[in-house]
Design a protein around this nucleic acid. Structure first.
Lengths: 216, 216
DNA sequence: GTGAACAAAATTGTTGACAATCCTGTTGCT
DNA sequence: AGCAACAGGATTGTCAACAATTTTGTTCAC
């Protein structure tokens, strides 16, 4: 479904508009709750209004923008409350994926996870939060991939797209990497031990801590 | 997001097309994997092609139809494998909602649940599978409502829409009501006891049994 | 001065036509 | 006969203009 379209290559007009709009929203170039006027966007991106319209419909169903009939589109603002609800859903879905990964992953894939764990430990020890953040994301992605649960992966993609803002704030928090590192290592250990219940519990424990942090 | 638009009232053209198309697909009027030609649908529903197009984009992101660029739209066929994956996601999400309902529901709402439980018991005793099926759906809906977890509810709506076919097959199965009744009663009991962990476990146990049944 | 009715501007929703793309059946060459 | 190239038809993607709706600013009565 989300076809991971690269903005660079010459796509179709609608796909291009969709990619550009999504990028603009995700990178925060659009102010929260900013009005998205179809004509302006069409001119800005060099496509026609129909293409912008189609892209907006797509983004609305992804939860990135809000469309009110005859009233236009706005970039959707995710309140802290909603962010917590979203993260609760992430909690159970990633728990499911961790459990399945513990059963389904190959030996090579397990090695990959332990390798990621070591790299994360090193990043924290060296005090490189940016690297750690990237590895963090990589770890989560790999667990989803190895679980083979494509439906859950699709749902999580959608949920994560709505959280970019809050996720950003969270990563910059001092002391947070140290806190989450042990949780991540616990997840890796449980999956490597082929223990689905422990893996699910560890993944959920991690996201419970994220929820607590979200609440400030 | 899905605004629960009633087909009857005079909506906007796109909303009307969307409602009619969704209804047609859900009621099985469209054969599986049938091609959905925009022109035909437009004429059939008495709206313009642009409206049909917008509706198709919406339905594609709901997972009801499949859209291939320059190749058109088909009603999406859900394999048994996918149905299992979807139900696994339902399992953890409904588990989450059951747990939250055990904490958040009011006393009146708890009474409503126990009332539903009694009605379901009666329906099984009287041998009325249709009534039981309706009450079943009602129970699930109420648990979601009482949980207050709107994000999970949205995700579950989307997932359930993809399962209509399989769900149908399941309900007509002889002996299945008796089997699931005790599971449902266990869920109600756990929520009424304000025990979130037990509620989640009961909800998950129920859906594990659904998964087993799905696999034939 | 305040509030309601009204008119003008801005924006979205809709329409029909045009262009690009893809599938199918046929033709021509080896 | 087998296969590549090619037209023909069908379908989707795109466009610019038009209609309907909402919002905003103004005027007028009280």
């Amino acid at each position: 479904m989300p076809n991971e379209a690269r903005p660079g290559t010459g796509e179709q007009a609608k796909q291009l508009a969709l990619a550009k709009l999504r990028q603009a929203i995700l990178q925060g170039e659009m102010a929260p709750a900013q009005r998205l006027v179809e004509n302006e966007l069409a001119e800005q991106f060099g496509v026609t209004r129909a293409s912008v319209r189609a892209a907006l419909i797509d983004l609305a169903s992804e939860g990135l923008v809000e469309r009110i009939p005859n009233r236009g589109s706005r970039v959707r603002v995710v309140t802290v409350e909603e962010a917590v609800a979203i993260t609760e859903c992430r909690m159970v879905l990633e728990g499911l994926c961790a459990a399945k990964a513990a059963v389904e992953a190959s030996e090579e894939q397990l090695e990959r996870l332990t390798g990621l764990g070591e790299a994360m430990s090193k990043a924290v020890a060296d005090g490189e939060p940016v690297t750690y953040s990237e590895l963090n994301r990589e770890l989560h992605d790999r667990i989803l991939e190895f679980s083979g649960q494509q439906v859950a992966v699709g749902l999580l993609d959608r949920l994560n797209a709505q959280l970019v803002k809050h996720r950003f704030r969270l990563a910059l928090r001092p002391g947070r990497p140290q806190q989450s590192l042990s949780q991540h290592l616990a997840i890796i250990e449980a999956i490597s031990a082929r223990d689905p219940q422990a893996a699910e519990a560890a993944a959920r424990a991690h996201l419970v801590s994220v929820i607590d942090a979200l609440r400030d």
